[in-house]
Every structure is written in structure tokens, then in C-alpha cells.
Write a protein that binds this DNA or RNA. Sequence first.
DNA 1: TGACCATAATTGGTCACCAATGTAGCAATG
DNA 2: CATTGCTACATTGGTGACCAATTATGGTCA
Lengths: 233, 233
Amino acid sequence: MPVDGRIPTLSRGTTAEEVAALLRDLIMSGSLKPGEQLREEGLSAQFDVSRRTVRDALGLLARERIVRHYRHKGSRVVLFTENDIHDLYRVRTTLEGSAAARAGELSDAQLKGLTEAFEDLESATNDGQAEAIVSADLAFHQAVVGLIGSTRVNDFFADIAVEMRFALSILESTYHESSHRPAEALAEHRAIWAAFLDRDVATASRLVQEHADANERLLVDVVASTAITDLIP
Amino acid sequence: MPVDGRIPTLSRGTTAEEVAALLRDLIMSGSLKPGEQLREEGLSAQFDVSRRTVRDALGLLARERIVRHYRHKGSRVVLFTENDIHDLYRVRTTLEGSAAARAGELSDAQLKGLTEAFEDLESATNDGQAEAIVSADLAFHQAVVGLIGSTRVNDFFADIAVEMRFALSILESTYHESSHRPAEALAEHRAIWAAFLDRDVATASRLVQEHADANERLLVDVVASTAITDLIP
DNA sequence: TGACCATAATTGGTCACCAATGTAGCAATG
DNA sequence: CATTGCTACATTGGTGACCAATTATGGTCA
């Protein structure tokens, strides 16, 4: 009987989506650790929501690949493997590479979105809030992929971005403040942005590849040393 | 009370997945027409399955974008718009273009999968079964995208392929046998296959683009003349 | 006609229940 | 001693009945 906090007629989206959002935050913040089992009964009590609704929420997170579901064994927070990191970055280089290949044919209107994303990243970096920087970073990359101009690709990459953020949140919580060098990162992003503004296909292609490779190496090192394996047969 | 046809302990996957598969077939075969409403109650009775389970199945199809869900208004079979077709083919050219760009670095093992897919398409074309040809055609393109080597991209494109098949099934049922020219199509696929075998990046890139453009034009003509709009606010 | 209101239809969500499956512990057996 | 087999338990899969929320419908009245 959900009677408390939720404002009935003001809630956007279904309750399952709200519960999913709550769980997503708990996972991102590290309150729920990778590999941890998510029992429907407990969550149902914790969120004051039916077990059935919790299951729907877990289903939503499962398609985002944030949790993994095993039949009759329940759901757990995913454990990233080295392969996952490689795969995520392969997706990113694939899509950003395609965007770069189109750099020559982009309209000013399209590039405006990229410019806004870069400026957001710039001010976030100046403010120095770690989480805001990560958000703006991912938003910039979503803007790059957005240049492809496909809603399906955008939706796909939105899910990928969530996964990447999750991977990054593990990195943060494991090696505190170890990895991100906001200043260098901003410079790299500025160079990418400039290459797109110049409609310089070759430079844009090279830079997105290099930028992705550098970040991938950082993550792989951490994941390889922490997560053992994903095998829970 | 599901007591009938399903063999209890042998059933792969959940009941919701089975119901989703059934519905998918009904939609593909044209028994359920684009825009048609799917009432949970009726389907529940029809498949001898709980309404709740039907809802899960509809949720699955909704993520495949085969049905569309409107809050408190129910689910309907999607109506493709011209934009959808453009978007689907933009996804395809994007991913196949990326695969082509890698043509130079492909291993023999990777190309083996492509060769098998082409040979399947060849024999299906010789057999002349329309549906089998469409399947093999899509499988070939999935093999091309598979050369990128990302499971996430593969999963994404698998959904895209389902959408394309749905779009093609509408084409079939509208203009009977109008569009597909199996012989020409086979020749085009052979050329693409050969370009990958030769690791000829330029030719592969050009051919996948041309092949996609040609098919896109066919579909757009039909969709533009049938589907009015998707606006059911 | 057009605004308004009662009513029906449909989905959103909960609850209590049982079935199916997996897990852990413990005994019996070789 | 390791392995098998059994039993009890925990968790998920699925159902059906139910009520709430939202939308659609149809009629009344100005």
C-alpha cells in the first residue's frame, strides 16, 4: 500500500520506472555493490511497493544491463568484466567514428548542439564538481553521437552512456579521485569539438579514437584488478 | 490456468517471452495489422495466460518497437512512418559502414561467418521461398554488422533487424510480390561479400551504402503511400 | 452546436496464493 | 572420505480477484 512520499497525481512515469530510477541511483552511488543480489521481497518492503512492481523495475534495469537476471535465481548488480569495458568502448568508437565521418556534411544547426554540450562541460569543469563533470562528459559524447541523426542510435547510446557511468562510478569508488584529470580531459574535448566545427573529418576521426583509447585503458586497468568474473551460472 | 499445449519442463524461456513470440508472429504475418489495438483482456483469454503475463509480453515487444504503448490507453501495433524507414536505414548504413571501414583488419575466422551467411542466402534464393529469403537476407546483414565485434552492437542490430522484417512484411502484404528481385539482390550481396573477402575498404563501403539506399527507396515509396501518421496522442 | 456530466471500458497496481526451481544441510552409502 | 540422495527451505514465476486511476463514450441541456 503505497501511501507515503510519492505525490500521486504529479508522478511522471509509472511506479516501476520510479522504483527503477531509485535503484539506479543506489547502484550508481555504490550503496548497492556490483554482484550484490537484489531480492524482490526486500526491495518491495523497502520501497513500500508491490513485489510485482519491483520485478517490473528490475526488468527495466535488466535491459539497461545495469542488473542481470538469472531465472529462478534472481537479479544481481552486474559485475563488469574487462570484456564489457572493451565492448562499451568499441560501441563508442564505432558510433563516434561514424559521426566523425559525417563531419563534412554537418549543418550549423547540428553543430550548435555540440557547442552547447562542450560549453556545459567547460563550466562544469571550472566548478569542479566531480559528478557534474562526469554528466557533462557523457552528455558531450551523446551530442557527438547525436550528429549521426538517428533516434534509434541515440536511444541505444543513451543506454550505453548509463553503463559507462556505472563503470566510472565503480572506478571512482575504488580508486578515489584517482583517474580523472579534468583539465587534460577538457583540452581533449575542446580539440574534438574544434575538429567538428572545422568539418575536418580526418582530425575528428583520429581524435575521437585516441580519446576513447586513452579512457579505455584507464578503466581496463581498474576493472581487471577488481572484478574477477561474471560467471554465476 | 495454462494447461494445454506447452510442455511444462521443456519450455525455453519465460511464458511472457513465449507469448511475445506468438504475438510477434501474428504481427509479422499480418494477422494483426499496423495500428491495431492490442487489448490485454482479449489476448489473455486467447492465449490462456494471465493478463499480467500478457502485459509483460507487450512490454517486451514495446522495447523491440514492434508495438507502442500509451499510458492508460493500451498498446497498438506500430505504424511505420517515412521517418522510421529513414531512421532504420540510417542505422544500417552507419553500422555497416563501420564494418566496412574495418574490412582491412578482419581475420579469416571473422570472414568465415560472413561467407556462411552468404551461402545460406544463395541457397535460399535458389529455393525461392520468399520468407526464407528475407530471413537469410537479414541474417547476412547481421553478419556484416557482426564484423564490428561488439555484442552490444549485435544485440542492438538484432532488434533493428526485427523492425526491418516487420517493415518488409508490410511491404509484402501491401504490394504482393512487388518488390523483391531475388536475383539482383543476390548479385549485390555477392559483390559486398567479395569486397569484404578482398579486404577492400573502399569498395565495401561504397557497395553497402548503395545497396542500402536502393532498398530504402523501395520501402519509402510504399510507406509514404500507405501509413498516414503515428500520432495517437 | 457545444459544454457538461454520468457511466462504461481499459489499463495501472496491489494482494494473497500456489507452482516451479534452486540452495543448503544432513544423513546414508559405498 | 567423498559422493550420492533426500528433505526442508528460500526465492522467483505465474495466476486470479480485486480496486484505483485514467480515458473514452454517450446523452442531456442550454
